[in-house]
Nucleic acid binder design. Structure first.
Lengths: 118, 118
DNA sequence: TGATAATATCAGTCCATATTTATATGAATA
DNA sequence: TATTCATATAAATATGGACTGATATTATCA
């Protein structure tokens, strides 16, 4: 399985967004819920403006959506399927064992092998 | 679905690693293959020492493994299941459509709803 | 309508880390 | 054994973006 340039150009910015620890914390903290910003501020312990900044990044990247309800703006995941993806990643990480240098006896040379060609 | 602190403390560093664009490029470029460093250097266009640095980060985080073969050191994915995870993420990203504010008619208030409690 | 609360925006600073340059290490070869 | 090639390491520097403080915007309430 290989990812072409288009695949990568799609993955890179998305992973960049969720690669930031506090943004991931916000996403995980949201889960299935919808929370107003004040709750996110308290849950994360971050400054209000910092939270607002991260929420904007998440919103513009399509990870969360916002809805104003009176004085509050509620945020929740734009698509909760993301949780499944994160869950898969978590499970994968859990099953990794540092003592196994060759996971699942995967052959080292499993594909194209080159010393001088790309 | 919620991720507790332990889950998050596992996900955060991992996503931090692959959230760096060039490291993700290296992983995607490896795919099923095993490549010597020179190939990775040429494929990415990065400097040799920069590649070496990123490979070390990937290696220490358990994403790749290295094997010396004579004058060359070959790198490949430590566990190619990662490709499936990335593939799922890619597919998810592809199916996201910016014009749909409410993905799959997911209810906005899908869970815990609070304005003042965390 | 003014005060207050919730939240976003802006500009500047700070900090983590990517990158570069110099050098060290390991392997192959003459 | 010295040289060359491949790659890693160390230190310094550059860069991007997280964070902060000030301020603006929006909604609510008296």
């Amino acid at each position: 399985m290989k990812f072409n340039e288009q695949d990568q150009s799609r993955l890179i910015p998305a992973l960049k967004v969720i690669g930031e620890p506090n943004r991931l914390r916000i996403l995980c903290g949201l889960g299935m819920a919808c929370l107003p910003v004040v709750d996110i501020i308290h849950a994360t312990g971050l400054g209000q403006t910092n939270v607002s900044f991260h929420l904007r990044v998440l919103r513009e990247a399509g990870f969360v959506r916002a809805e104003r309800r009176g004085a509050f703006i509620f945020y929740c995941l734009a698509d909760r399927d993301l949780l499944q993806i994160l869950q898969n990643l978590k499970l994968w990480l859990e099953t990794r064992v540092e003592t196994h240098p060759n996971r699942k006896n995967q052959p080292l040379m499993g594909g194209h092998n080159s010393a001088t060609t790309t």
